[in-house]
Design a protein around this nucleic acid. Structure first.
Length: 602
DNA sequence: AAATATAACGTCAACTGACC
DNA sequence: GGTCAGTTGACGTTATATTT
């Protein structure tokens, strides 16, 4: 697969050889990079199409230069040229410098020329006047240059066609996308059903009671720390996974001989080489942003000319609506690769050993990855919808991280809790996971309440009496969200463990915890359904009943309430017979019988 | 011409590490 | 310790190239 760990390694050495001079194509208004949707023969682009060389007509070159001067784009080109320390091999590889003859896909063909050389707008075709540079409107030259003009006209016609096609295809693509999304939503339930059937066709799973597994996707950050049976089969070894232990193993035996599309999820130990590559990637993105003069998501319009005040050099401006192979983006990647190369040569930044080796190809790929990473950040700032999605994603991530940290804290108090309540310590080890902890919000998380108002509310709930802004400035709160699925008993345990941890902190030099945890009187609830089913005693019976009646939730709680209780808790509270219960957490099984659901209502 | 393989992306979410 | 931006792996999609 991707041996080097770089997602794009399979792209091999087939970079389109846009070069710095490809900016001339921008000048011509050429759509230098074609969408995937535009890969018909008429749009086929050859590696040399967007570079021009010595065999262009001198007047064409002259015109290009004139335009370049007029458009001030020479500044940009100068930036790229001055940034180009690429060795000859890089030039060959990436097409920097003079390339093969400039043959466009829409290459000059007298047979297809319009009957007139006068550049009139074509019927039914959108004018590109705002995008086409003046060269297209240049007056008819003498006969010695008419061919160049004709070619320019032809290019213009071709480009109009290309643009029109692109727009049409983009529209079709958008419609298809929407349709696809709708279908996906409609079919989600069906997919779950099919998954269920597929899984059921597998041999019976010999999961020990309490086998810990997740849903189709491994969502646990700590696969190795998951509770495992002391003597259970299939739990030892390097590749401990939580994904449907038994089921997945069977899947693999069936599938790995085939196309092997579902790869076994291994915890990979990074080699030194891998670490170096990661460090170079990090450096690349840092320098990419540096060369662009952008931090965060505030990517400016690519047409805005920005100059680095300290160096006087124009900042690079990627064209994010286009992809990485757009000539300008390509040139930026080449330039950034060169900058990274220089940086690596002049001084080895942290994390990159003196003996580190790299290739121009690697640096280029890193620069491409950096482009994509930056494009992601651009996207987040670009559209409200994207920003919203990103915000939700970030919040989920933040909460997930908090739960992980909380779990880490709680773990240190399990023995103390067991001792305090006379419970078996080994049961405590398998009582909770990150999934079974409540989420904690560090702000209002919705638009109806300001952060300050939220803070006052938290302070009040916490019992603080001085609520002035000055007094609250230093305070930080976490609003503990209610888990509707959790029983009071399990919530109590979780809260007590947290309290034990907080108490333990007060005895150390690190002092009080940063946050004050608040459970408000009108406790906010959060409807995340854990991937892991708690023991029965930890489930809110009313909630579970309600979920089972909800087709959307029913698959997620399919196995909830089926595992009984561990020793010392719930129904087993008075029993000392640990053999009747398992000490491991049970997994949620996404299996769901749609046919049976309606009849089987409980 | 149909089937298959491959390139070149894109998306998602778990995870990492730098910075505050 | 907490947050945020970035990385990474898995997987999906589409068009093109090659094989049958």
């Amino acid at each position: 697969m991707q041996q080097s760990g770089f997602p794009r390694d399979r792209q091999q050495h087939q970079h389109p050889t846009h070069d710095y001079d490809s900016f001339e194509d921008d000048l011509y208004g050429s759509p230098p990079r074609l969408d995937n949707n535009l890969r018909g023969p008429q749009y086929q682009r050859r590696s040399h199409e967007y570079s021009y060389g010595e065999d262009l007509h001198p007047l064409q070159l002259e015109m290009m230069n004139d335009i370049r001067r007029e458009e001030s784009l020479h500044i940009e080109e100068r930036v790229y040229r001055t940034m180009d320390p690429a060795p000859p091999s890089m030039h060959r590889q990436y097409g920097i410098g003079r390339g093969p003859p400039p043959v466009r896909s829409t290459s000059f063909n007298p047979g297809t020329l319009p009957s007139t050389a006068i550049p009139t707008p074509l019927t039914g075709r959108r004018s590109r006047s705002t995008q086409l540079p003046a060269v297209h409107d240049a007056p008819v030259q003498t006969s010695s240059v008419q061919m160049a003009d004709i070619e320019a006209l032809f290019q213009r016609v071709s480009l109009q066609q290309e643009e029109r096609h692109r727009e049409q295809m983009a529209q079709v693509s958008r419609q298809q996308e929407e349709h696809h999304r709708e279908q996906m939503e409609q079919n989600q339930a069906l997919h779950a059903r099919m998954d269920s059937l597929e899984r059921r066709s597998q041999p019976p799973v010999s999961v020990q009671r309490g086998g810990f597994s997740g849903r189709a996707r491994n969502n646990s950050p700590e696969p190795r720390d998951l509770p495992v049976a002391d003597d259970g089969p299939g739990t030892a070894g390097e590749e401990v996974r939580i994904v449907d232990d038994g089921v997945e193993a069977d899947d693999e035996s069936d599938e790995e001989g085939g196309e092997g599309k579902r790869k076994r999820k291994k915890k990979k130990v990074k080699t030194d080489e891998g670490k170096t590559q990661t460090a170079i990637q990090t450096l690349s993105t840092k320098l990419f942003r540096g060369a662009c003069g952008v931090k965060g998501r505030d990517w400016p319009d690519p047409d805005t000319i920005r100059i680095n005040p300290s160096t006087g050099v124009r900042y690079l401006s990627p064209v994010f609506p286009e992809d990485v192979n757009h000539p300008r983006n390509h040139a930026i990647c080449v330039a950034v690769a060169a900058i990274v190369g220089e940086e690596l040569k002049s001084k080895k930044p942290a994390g990159i050993p003196q003996t580190a080796k790299w290739t121009d190809d690697l640096l280029f790929k890193c620069a491409q990855n950096s482009f994509r990473a930056c494009k992601e950040s651009w996207k987040k700032g670009e559209k409200e919808e994207n920003a919203k999605r990103a915000e939700i994603n970030e919040r989920s991530n933040r909460w997930y991280r908090r739960r992980c940290t909380k779990m880490l804290h709680i773990k240190s108090q399990l023995d103390a809790y067991a001792e305090k309540h006379g419970l078996p310590a080994h049961v405590m080890q398998h009582l909770l996971t990150e999934q079974l902890l409540s989420d904690e919000a560090s702000g209002p998380e919705d638009e109806d309440e300001s952060f300050d108002a939220w803070k006052v509310r938290m302070a009040t709930a916490y019992g603080l009496t001085v609520l002035t802004p000055a007094a609250l400035k230093k305070e930080q709160f976490l609003e503990v969200l209610k888990c509707p699925w959790r029983s009071d008993e399990l919530s109590e345990i979780s809260h007590e463990l947290q309290a034990l941890y907080d108490a333990s902190l007060k005895t150390t030099a690190s002092g009080n915890p940063k946050y004050k945890r608040v459970i408000t009187p009108t406790q906010r609830t959060w409807d995340r359904i854990p991937y892991v089913a708690p023991w029965d005693f930890g489930i809110s019976a009313e909630w579970l009943d309600a979920q089972r009646r909800d087709p959307a939730s029913a698959p997620l709680v399919h196995d909830w309430g089926k595992y009984g209780d561990p020793e010392g808790f719930g129904a087993q509270a008075m029993s000392a017979d640990s053999t009747t219960s398992d000490t491991r957490l049970r997994a949620v099984d996404p299996q769901f019988d749609f046919d049976g659901l309606s009849e089987r209502e409980e």
